[in-house]
């Protein structure tokens, strides 16, 4: 008698997704990354109505539905407003490969900015991370004009 265990495996059809995209950075990201690459400055943009300094910079303040205005340098020092330590190999969307674990990640409110940004923290030990701690952006020597130019945020004493 045929047994269930002898049943053939159900058919799966493997298809690999290989799609190429060319994303236009747009005027705001372009300026942001150009500045980061050339001068190492991190720039935010100010809404003329609510006066919030937004990072990343963008064409429109969603809160006021108005065009953003003046460019403002922010950071490189900032305050951790949220933190975590990652123990699971999530995929890095920019490379398609998992990032080595464990590592620290945080929401960092750069000095002079309203919005906090996601980034990697040098410190990965949850016991050494706390809200309100001060950090500073560490930049690549040879910058390429992308978000990876900020390597991570390093804990600082003030």
């Amino acid at each position: 008698m045929k047994r269930n265990t002898e049943r053939e495996e159900l058919l799966r059809i493997p298809i690999q997704m290989k799609l190429q995209y060319r994303f236009p950075a747009g005027a705001h990201y372009e300026r942001f990354f150009r500045e980061l690459k050339k001068t190492g400055k991190i720039m935010g943009i100010k809404c003329p109505e609510c006066e919030r300094v937004l990072v990343p910079p963008r064409p429109v303040c969603g809160e006021c539905f108005t065009r953003t205005g003046e460019w403002v340098e922010v950071g490189p020092k900032g305050t951790v407003v949220a933190h975590t330590s990652i123990y699971f190999p999530f995929i890095d969307g920019s490379t398609g490969k998992p990032r080595p674990i464990p590592y620290g990640a945080g929401l960092i409110q750069l000095d002079g900015a309203y919005s906090a940004i996601n980034h990697i923290l040098e410190e990965g030990d949850p016991d050494k991370l706390h809200i309100g701690m001060r950090v500073e952006a560490m930049l690549k020597e040879k910058r390429e004009g992308n978000i990876g130019d900020i390597l991570y945020f390093k804990t600082i004493e003030e």
């Binding site: 995209y21 994303f23 950075a25 990201y29 990354f33 990343p56 975590t84 990652i86 699971f88 999530f90 995929i91 890095d92 969307g93 920019s94 990032r99 990640a105 940004i117 996601n118 980034h119 990697i120 992308n146 978000i147 990876g148």
Partner: peptide, 15 residues
Amino acid sequence: TDPFWDRHVAAAAIG
């Protein structure tokens, strides 16, 4: 997500 920003630094939803 946002190819210029979150893709590199956000650890998907759970992060």
